[in-house]
Each structure stands twice: as C-alpha cells, then as structure tokens.
Amino acid sequence: MGSGLSMNRQTAFWALLAPPLLFVGIFFVVPLLNLFWVSLHGASSTELFGSNLSGENYYRILTDSFYHTIILRTLWAGMSIMLLCLVLGYATAYVIAPLPPRTRLIMLLLLVAPLMVSNVIRAYGWIAILGRQGVVNSMLRSTGLIDGPLLLLNSFEAVAFGLMTILLSYMVVSIVNALNAIDRQYIEAAQSLKANPVRTFIEVVWPLSSPGVASGTLLVFLLTLSAYVTITLLGGPRMKLLVSLVFDSVSGFRWPLAAALSFALLTLALVVAGLILALLRPGRVQGRG
C-alpha cells in the first residue's frame, strides 16, 4: 500500500509539472533555439531563410562600423539610464525606507502603480509635456520667454530621461527592500564607534544594500534594451538603438539578420549583467543571492 501511495504521488507530480513544462518548452525554449538556427543562415527572397549555413550575419555585425556605433550608443544609453535611476532611486529609497510600514506601502504604491500603465501611455504623457505644442512650450510661450517652440524631443537626452522616469520605480522598490533588510544593529555599531554619517553610509549601508542595487540596475538595463516603443516615440526616427535595428530588419523581411541582431542584444544583456554582478558582488551580503 505504501508503494501505491508513492506511485500516486509520483503520477500527481508529473501530471502537475508536465503541462506547464511543455508549454514553456514549446513556446519559449524551442522558438529561441529556432531563432538561433535561423540566425545561422543567409537571407532568402522566398523563404524565411536561405538554405546554406553561414555566419555572415554575425560577421556583418562584428565588422560593420554602423553596427558598432549603434551597439556603443545602446550601451551608453543603458549606462546613462542606469546611473540616473541609481542616483534618484537611491535617494528616494533612502527617504522612504525608514517610514512607518503603512506610509511606506502607500508611498511605494504611488511609484509601483504607474508601472502597470502601458509604456506607450507614459511616453505619450511626455510627448504632451515636452512636444512642440506641449505643456512646457505653451507655458514658456505665454510668458513671452520664447518665440518659437523649443525642440525637447527627438534626441538621445529625451530617450534617456523618458526611460529613466519609466524604469525608476523598479530601482526604488529594489533598494527599499534591501535597506529594510539591513539589521539596525550594524548601523548603531558604526555610530557607537563614532563613524560619521558619510562613513557609516560608505562602509556599512552601501555594501549591505548592494543586492538591491544589483537587482535594480540589472532590471533597468535589461528593460532599456527592449524599449522599442519608448525609444521610437521620444527619440524620433533617427535615434536608433540595437532594438530598433531588430525591428527594422523585420520590417524589411530580413529574418536571419533580425535573428542575429537579437542574439547580439542577448549577448549584450549577459555581458552587462555579468559586469554588474562582478562589480557589486551582491552575494557577499549573507543570506541573499
């Protein structure tokens, strides 16, 4: 009877695990492997991809200086947004974290609820504020400070600023969680040893909050890589990042190139994630990954 029961459990385990495992396998893992396979082919005018295996797409990305410019610009955009989010997000988290629990939750909700609003709507909000007929320009014009509209959109800065505001909440929440996980005794110990607030911050608070900083910066960078709609709306047609090239290749039906560019994007994600983890070493904080 004992073995009957364990048989029963074994069947139940597989009956539960098989459907989700198959679903993710078929619609996440297999398409990704297929994408890689497609990226290893030349283009074809009639089929999805040419018949011969070739590394021409990757060769092109690695050797063509056009792609280098775009990849560097993507990295630069990601870094700028990450740094902006880190400075603003850390300051905000530092103010919110010590608040009483109920107040803290409400303050966090005010930042988290906007994440549920589609990015296209949040970008539209910035167009309404910064566009030619936008809030800023009409206010400046009515006060007579300017004659023609200021061009505040369609630039690298507009993309960096806009994405910073869209992704900031992730950083704040990650850091608030990390700050609240710090044992108060460490900070009191530093203070009783007469460390001033700056030194306490640098030697105690910052290292102990590194898991939050790591997960926040990681999330911000990874989401920047995919943000095609925000980049297009705030940066205009000429502000291209790596993700725009993926989309452009698809519009031109160059599937293998689009596939290879996707893997360039994934590689960039992995490299930067590795760098962030190596730099911040969140694992050194005990009990957290």
Binding site: L32, L35, V243, A258, L265
Partner: peptide
C-alpha cells in the same frame, strides 16, 4: 522583444 521575434518566426 527577442521573445516576440522568436515566437513570430516560430
């Protein structure tokens, strides 16, 4: 974006 493209091609 990579998930979207991989599903489209799949």
């Amino acid at each position: 974006i990579v998930l979207g493209l991989s599903l489209l091609i799949f």
